[in-house]
């Protein structure tokens, strides 16, 4: 049997628009994953700590306020500092194309913008399954 993947869906920053995050959380659940949802207004520190305690394989960050360039890389950096760089971080929200190279370079594995189908996210997770199945 395949290992049960655990995914943390987290909302860093201060915006309260959680429609997308909740949708993704629920859709991933329906796809058979164990999803942990943090709720809104989480600091990068709290997200990293939660990811480690819950021993998740992926962290999905959702942000609509435009603070992604500051907050997404911070989560990756904190995971690295805690020797948890094997946890794969992806992001979603209103993120301009022009910010993507920077975010990728900072270790965000994938960015999903509005209009992305859930199938694309699942495809991404499954493609990375070998990387997290240790």
């Amino acid at each position: 049997m395949n290992k049960k993947l655990r995914i943390l869906i987290a909302k860093p920053g201060l915006d309260g628009h959680d429609r997308g995050a909740k949708y993704v959380a629920r859709a991933l659940k329906d796809a058979g994953y164990e999803v942990i949802y943090t709720g809104i207004r989480q600091s990068p520190e709290a997200i990293a700590q939660t990811a480690i305690q819950e021993d998740v394989d992926f962290v999905g960050l959702s942000l609509l306020s435009g603070a992604h360039n500051e907050l997404f890389p911070r989560v990756v950096q904190l995971l690295r500092e805690k020797q948890a760089s094997d946890i794969i971080v992806f992001g979603g929200g209103v993120i301009p194309e022009s910010d993507m190279p920077f975010l990728k370079e900072q270790g965000i594995a994938a960015i999903f913008t509005p209009g992305t189908s859930i199938a694309a996210i699942i495809e991404f997770i499954e493609a990375n399954r070998p990387r997290v199945s240790h």
Binding site: A31, Y33, E34, I36, T38, G39, E45, T50, Q53
Partner: peptide, 18 residues
């Protein structure tokens, strides 16, 4: 058993995350 799950209970305790 076979399906996924959403674990949202820790949400109300999240202030202790740090």
């Amino acid at each position: 058993f076979t399906g996924g799950a959403i674990l949202g209970d820790r949400l109300r305790m999240q202030r202790h995350a740090l």
